[in-house]
Amino acid sequence: MHDRFIPKRRLSLLFAASALTAGLFSAPVCAADWPDRAVTVVVPFSAGGTTDVVGRLIANKLGQMWGQSVVIENKLGAGGNIGSAAVAQSKPDGYTILLASGSILTVNPHLYASLPFDVDNDFLPVTNIAQGPMVVVTAKKVKVKTLQELLDMAKKNPKKLNMGSAGMGSQVHMAGENFSYAAKVEFTHVPYRGEAAGLSDLLAGQIDLMVGNIGAATPHIQSGMINVLAVTSKDRAAMLPDVPTVSEAGVPGFENYGWFGFVVPKGTPNDIVRKIQQDTVKVLAMKDVKEKLSSLGMQAVGNSSEEFANNIKEESDRWAKVIKERNITISSGG
């Protein structure tokens, strides 16, 4: 018997055809086919905090809409940088989404000497989901009844009051820094691995105050376990109508908002980014979702990817100035 001989040119064509066929089967999935399996939403903070609560609300609705599981993965640490880096390094196919707090995208690039990701080069903005004010809250052991009394105490005792946060560089941390900077007082910062952990120690009297997300703090305010002195919005908050604004209570002109938005790894196909954005907007328009966000003291946003990108840039520029003037730096971002 003789071995079958295949001319070199024909062999080359066969290999080319095989490669083309393999390419067809390994081609990136398009939005019409996506998702065909579970999607992971990474929340870079602990379970129970505002980011987590908002994430679970939206993930549940998207899962129903897509007919696939949308799983929340809490991957915390380093002010949200660890979870964010994991998403930046994931495959850009739409199956891994980051629910980022504003601080991750607009503060951390200026705060950390080095980061394991680059906001501009590693992420594509999808949409801002929701925003809301923060609240200045104190432990019951802190014997003040008004914001002005807190400021007077802080001025008489520089750095004696401990201010908790959701972690270095978190929006809870930076809201506190922004507040102390505007009020010209100094607190000692105590970072936690997530807002829920900080609030737990505030309830226990282990720290003195926080400038926390209104949704996370309000149940404890309403139970009488902590005291609320002011909200950081321009106008009074609907869920706490008797609480004055920081501007009213002693720091004229002060405003600070927390927000959360979806971003995906750079390179995610545009049609998939568009589908995530459009479907998230549909979820945010649902009556029960609006009501839940309102109960958290937040307002649905659902802007376009382009608008979201512009907002990130503008806010990033503002935080760069504050951080430089406050001379705040952190050596490593995770």
Score class of each variant (00 low, 15 high):
Arg4Glu: 02
Arg9Met: 14
Ala19Gly: 10
Ala19Asn: 04
Ala27His: 04
Ala27Tyr: 15
Pro28Trp: 15
Pro28Asp: 09
Cys30Asn: 14
Cys30Leu: 13
Ala31Pro: 08
Ala31Arg: 04
Asp33Gln: 01
Arg37Val: 00
Pro44Tyr: 01
Ala47Asp: 04
Gly49Ile: 03
Thr51Asp: 02
Thr51Phe: 07
Thr51Val: 04
Val53Leu: 14
Val54Cys: 10
Arg56Asn: 00
Arg56Thr: 03
Ala59Tyr: 08
Asn60Phe: 15
Gly63Asp: 09
Gly63Gln: 06
Met65Leu: 08
Gly67Leu: 03
Gln68Val: 15
Val71Pro: 01
Leu76Trp: 07
Leu76Glu: 13
Gly83Gln: 06
Ala85Gly: 03
Ala88Met: 12
Gln89Phe: 13
Gln89Cys: 15
Ile97Gln: 12
Leu99Ile: 06
Ser101Leu: 03
Leu105Asn: 04
Val107Arg: 03
His110Asp: 10
Leu111Pro: 13
Tyr112Arg: 08
Tyr112Asp: 00
Tyr112Gly: 08
Ser114Val: 13
Pro116Ser: 13
Phe117Met: 07
Asp122Gln: 00
Pro125Asp: 00
Val126His: 01
Gln131Val: 12
Gln131Thr: 07
Val135Lys: 07
Val136Trp: 06
Lys141Ala: 10
Lys141Asn: 07
Lys145Ile: 09
Gln148Asn: 10
Asp152Thr: 02
Ala154Glu: 07
Lys155Trp: 00
Asn157Gly: 01
Met163Tyr: 04
Gly164Met: 08
Ser165Pro: 04
Ser165Trp: 10
Gln171Phe: 09
Val172Phe: 02
Val172Asn: 00
Ala175Gly: 12
Gly176Ala: 04
Ala182Ser: 05
Phe187Asn: 06
Phe187Arg: 10
Phe187Leu: 03
Val190His: 05
Val190Leu: 08
Arg193Lys: 12
Arg193Asp: 14
Gly194Pro: 05
Ala197Ile: 02
Leu199Pro: 03
Leu202Trp: 00
Ala204His: 06
Met210Leu: 09
Val211Asn: 09
Val211Lys: 01
Gly212His: 08
Ile214Ser: 00
Ile214Trp: 07
Gly215Met: 05
Pro219His: 01
His220Gln: 02
Ile221Gln: 09
Gln222Val: 09
Met225Cys: 04
Ile226Thr: 05
Asn227Gly: 14
Val231Trp: 09
Arg236Cys: 11
Leu240Ile: 09
Asp242Asn: 15
Pro244Asp: 05
Val246Ile: 10
Val251Thr: 04
Gly253Asp: 02
Phe254Asp: 11
Tyr257Pro: 07
Phe262Ser: 00
Val263Met: 00
Pro269Phe: 09
Asn270Trp: 13
Asp271His: 03
Arg274Leu: 15
Lys275His: 02
Lys275Phe: 13
Ile276Cys: 10
Gln277Phe: 08
Gln278Ala: 14
Asp279Ile: 12
Leu284Asn: 10
Val289Asp: 02
Ser295Asp: 12
Ala300Gln: 05
Val301His: 00
Val301Gln: 11
Asn303Arg: 00
Ala309Ser: 11
Ala309Lys: 14
Asn311Lys: 01
Glu315Thr: 14
Ala320His: 00
Val322Tyr: 14
Lys324Gln: 15
Glu325Pro: 04
Glu325His: 11
Arg326Leu: 05
Arg326Ala: 06
Asn327Gln: 13
Ile328Gly: 11
Ile328Asp: 15
Thr329Leu: 10
Ile330Trp: 14
Ser331Val: 12
